[in-house]
Computed example of a mutant assay.
Amino acid sequence: MVDGNSSLSVSAERRLQELGIQLPAAPTPFGTYVEALQTGNLLFLTGMLPVVDHKPKYLGRLGKELDVDAGRDAAYTAALSALAAAKQYLGSLDRVSRVVRLGVFMATSGDFFDQPRVADAVSDLFRDVFGIEKTSVRLVIGVASLPLGMPIELEVIFEVGE
């Protein structure tokens, strides 16, 4: 983990290098929409899914076909796609001035209650990349199903500067 006290002097791009994180190629749409859209100083990302090379990394529901660890990895994978989409759109993650909102939607069985622990995989990554002072508000919701049978979908809103 990157020390939160030094985060003001270290850029997000530099933190990625220090953490040894290689971003995947930015995701491409599964339908008729765009991956990122900016209005004013807010960058909205489309629902980010746990895909690798445009294929689902995980299928199923948490608490049924998948456990907490698989859910955390799926969430982390989707978060890497979010970072890749933002970087492609902005040119550099250093333009992100704040993570405004993180929505973590999970396909779950009816008796799965560990949603916050799964969502922390995303929150922890964003904290480590952008710094503790840019931590977002968060919404965590369990649902019956998500697109293409995947277990996780992220909603991400970044505030951007010049």
Score class of each variant (00 low, 15 high):
Val2Gly: 03
Val2Ile: 15
Asp3Thr: 14
Gly4Asp: 04
Gly4Thr: 13
Asn5Ser: 08
Asn5Cys: 08
Ser6Asn: 06
Leu8Ser: 09
Leu8Arg: 14
Ser9Gln: 09
Ser9Lys: 12
Val10Asn: 00
Ser11Pro: 02
Glu13Cys: 07
Leu16Ser: 06
Gln17Tyr: 14
Ile21Pro: 04
Gln22Asp: 09
Gln22Ala: 12
Gln22Phe: 15
Leu23His: 10
Leu23Gln: 03
Pro24Gln: 07
Ala26Ile: 07
Pro29His: 05
Phe30His: 10
Phe30Cys: 01
Gly31His: 13
Tyr33Gly: 05
Glu35Arg: 13
Gln38Pro: 02
Thr39Asn: 10
Thr39Pro: 01
Asn41Gln: 06
Asn41Arg: 04
Asn41Lys: 10
Leu42Phe: 15
Leu42Pro: 03
Leu43Glu: 06
Leu43Ser: 02
Leu45Trp: 11
Thr46Val: 15
Thr46Pro: 03
Pro50Leu: 03
Pro50Trp: 08
Pro50Gly: 04
Val51Leu: 12
Val51Asp: 08
Val52Thr: 10
Lys55Ser: 11
Pro56Ala: 02
Lys57Gly: 07
Tyr58Thr: 05
Tyr58His: 00
Leu59Trp: 05
Leu62Lys: 07
Gly63Lys: 01
Glu65Trp: 09
Glu65Asp: 00
Val68Tyr: 05
Asp69Lys: 14
Asp69Met: 13
Gly71Thr: 11
Asp73Met: 08
Asp73His: 10
Tyr76Val: 06
Thr77His: 02
Thr77Pro: 03
Ala78Leu: 04
Ser81Leu: 13
Leu83Val: 02
Ala84Arg: 04
Ala85Gln: 06
Gly91Ala: 03
Gly91Tyr: 12
Gly91Ile: 14
Ser92Gln: 11
Asp94Glu: 07
Arg98Asn: 05
Arg98Lys: 15
Val100Met: 09
Arg101Ser: 12
Gly103Glu: 04
Val104Thr: 00
Ala107Ser: 05
Ala107Ile: 06
Ala107Pro: 01
Thr108Lys: 03
Gly110Arg: 12
Gly110Asp: 05
Phe113Gln: 09
Phe113Cys: 02
Gln115Leu: 14
Gln115Arg: 11
Gln115Ala: 13
Asp120Met: 14
Ser123Gln: 01
Asp124Arg: 15
Asp124Ile: 14
Phe126Ile: 12
Arg127Leu: 11
Ile132Glu: 01
Glu133Asn: 11
Glu133Trp: 15
Thr135Lys: 12
Thr135Cys: 06
Thr135Phe: 13
Val137Asp: 10
Leu139Cys: 12
Val140Arg: 01
Val140Glu: 09
Ala144Phe: 14
Ala144Gln: 13
Ser145Asn: 10
Leu146Asn: 06
Leu146Val: 06
Pro147His: 01
Pro147Cys: 00
Gly149Ser: 11
Met150Val: 09
Glu153Tyr: 10
Leu154Met: 10
Val156Trp: 01
Ile157Gln: 08
Ile157Asn: 07
Phe158Lys: 09
Glu159Ala: 11
Gly161Thr: 15
Glu162Asn: 12
